[in-house]
Amino acid sequence: TEEYTYTDKEKADRAAKEWANRGYTVTVTQDGPTYRVRVG
């Protein structure tokens, strides 16, 4: 499991979509002003 942190919702959504397109399980959680994209 890897985790990426973004401050921009659009970038987080785009990253999540790209990982999902590659067949990974993706979870996006909002943590205050940041968005965490957990992959795998």
Rank of each mutant, 00 (worst) to 15 (best):
T1M: 13
T1F: 15
E3Y: 11
E3L: 08
E3K: 04
Y4F: 13
Y4R: 05
Y4E: 05
Y4P: 02
Y4K: 03
T5F: 14
T5Q: 08
T5W: 13
T5N: 07
Y6S: 02
Y6P: 00
T7L: 12
T7K: 09
T7P: 10
D8H: 05
D8P: 01
K9Y: 11
K9V: 06
K9M: 07
E10S: 10
E10Q: 10
E10V: 10
E10Y: 09
K11H: 12
A12I: 01
A12E: 00
D13A: 09
D13W: 14
D13G: 06
R14M: 12
R14S: 11
R14N: 11
R14G: 07
A15H: 06
A15R: 04
A15I: 08
A15S: 06
K17T: 11
K17P: 00
E18Q: 09
E18A: 09
E18Y: 15
E18R: 08
E18F: 15
W19N: 01
W19C: 05
W19M: 05
A20I: 13
A20F: 09
A20Y: 08
N21Y: 09
N21W: 07
R22F: 06
R22G: 05
R22Q: 11
R22S: 06
R22V: 05
G23F: 03
G23M: 02
G23W: 02
G23A: 02
Y24M: 05
Y24Q: 03
T25H: 12
T25Q: 11
V26Q: 00
T27L: 08
T27G: 04
T27M: 09
T27C: 07
T27W: 09
T27R: 06
V28A: 02
V28F: 05
V28K: 02
V28D: 00
T29N: 05
Q30I: 10
Q30E: 08
Q30G: 05
Q30L: 09
Q30M: 10
Q30T: 08
D31R: 05
D31G: 03
G32L: 03
G32P: 07
G32N: 02
P33M: 11
P33G: 14
P33R: 08
P33Y: 10
P33F: 11
P33N: 14
T34F: 15
T34S: 08
T34C: 14
Y35T: 04
Y35I: 07
Y35E: 00
Y35S: 01
Y35C: 03
Y35K: 00
Y35V: 04
R36P: 01
R36N: 07
R36I: 15
V37W: 00
R38D: 06
V39L: 06
V39K: 03
V39H: 02
G40L: 13
G40F: 15
G40T: 15
G40I: 14
